[in-house]
Amino acid sequence: MIKNAGPKYQIFNPQDETCPICVGLNHIYRTNSFQNEMKVPEAVGEGYCRRIVVKPSMRISISDMTFHERMTMGERQGSSLYSLAFCLGEGFLWRVEGNPKREYGIACGESCIFNRDQGISISSYDPGSRFLGICVEFDFDIITSFMQHREKDQAHNRLFTGSNFLYNGKISPAIRLILNEMMNCRYREQLKRIYLEGKILELIAVYLDETVFEDEAMSSAGEVSAYDREALYKARRILDENLVAPPTIGKLAKLIYLNEYKLKTGFKELFGMPVHAYIIDKRLELARLLIEDKKLKVTEAALLVGYNDLSYFAEKFRRKYGVNPSKYSKNI
């Protein structure tokens, strides 16, 4: 970790001062080496926690742990870094001590971004539940740089001032792909460090684009009324949940109580592409995730995302990713 960070950070079990999990986590969190991993003792559970220090202002923690008995752990934090956390396993709650006490939660498939300088936080983990996730710590200057590049200073001031817990939302297929690439990075040493630094920047950029900048786009689309904007975001949620068999334009328009013209023009203005193109784009992202993460065959992935014509699927995949899906699958 960065200089002087060790004494400020401590993981502890309020019920067991000699907790082996806390001892192991404190060891890997207080070292300066590039990568360290703690294995969960068999007597306690199974799994691991991996800590990667890409550079002092950029770190990654990957956890995949299951405990035999209920586990309570606290964190004493004093870091100036921000954290972007993604829950891929069971959700959990945590409490931040203070006056008043604050409680937060994250469910499976959700993400959150928060300031690590929160003092003491306490969380509990149920026995038999798999806690799988990845947390990226980074300097706030990275967000400031993205904001300034996009000329979003007002969004910066509104969303990132005076708040420890900043945002909680769903993990999109695009984000999930980046996380999968980070968690399964096949490079080593310096090449791995360079690769992960690039992936962290990509992750933050996509995350901000899907959350902060999306909110700004929603409020700055002057020609789209507030009612229509809300309806169009509902339309996108419906499409995201029904990519394999999406409703027709006519049916979608009825579901959101807009006419077809407003749906078509408003959707393109807010999201930068027509409805049909959006469906194709998201299907391809999901197909790539199934091929890469779930190790499905190209044919299986294509069918699962709604493509019966494999040559048409291959053409669209190649146009988006610059490589045939079969070749992509072999290179994983």
Rank of each mutant, 00 (worst) to 15 (best):
I194F: 10
G266W: 02
N4V: 10
R95L: 08
S80K: 15
L239G: 06
Y195W: 10
E181W: 00
V44K: 04
G98R: 08
E300F: 01
L255Q: 08
I249N: 02
Q154T: 12
F140P: 13
I279V: 13
E285Y: 02
A85K: 14
S219M: 08
E181S: 08
S79N: 14
E151Y: 00
R319E: 15
E37L: 08
P56Q: 09
G109Y: 00
G89P: 05
S219N: 14
R193V: 04
D215A: 09
V298S: 05
K254R: 09
S329R: 15
P20W: 00
N36I: 03
L208T: 13
M273A: 11
G119V: 07
V23S: 11
K320H: 06
G45M: 10
I332E: 03
L310V: 15
N32F: 02
L201K: 13
E137M: 11
I249Y: 01
A301I: 10
P274C: 08
S329M: 11
G109S: 07
K295Y: 01
L289V: 10
L310W: 00
M147K: 08
M147A: 03
G133F: 11
S61N: 05
Q190G: 03
A314Q: 07
D141W: 02
H27M: 04
I171E: 07
F131K: 12
K320V: 04
S172R: 02
H68R: 15
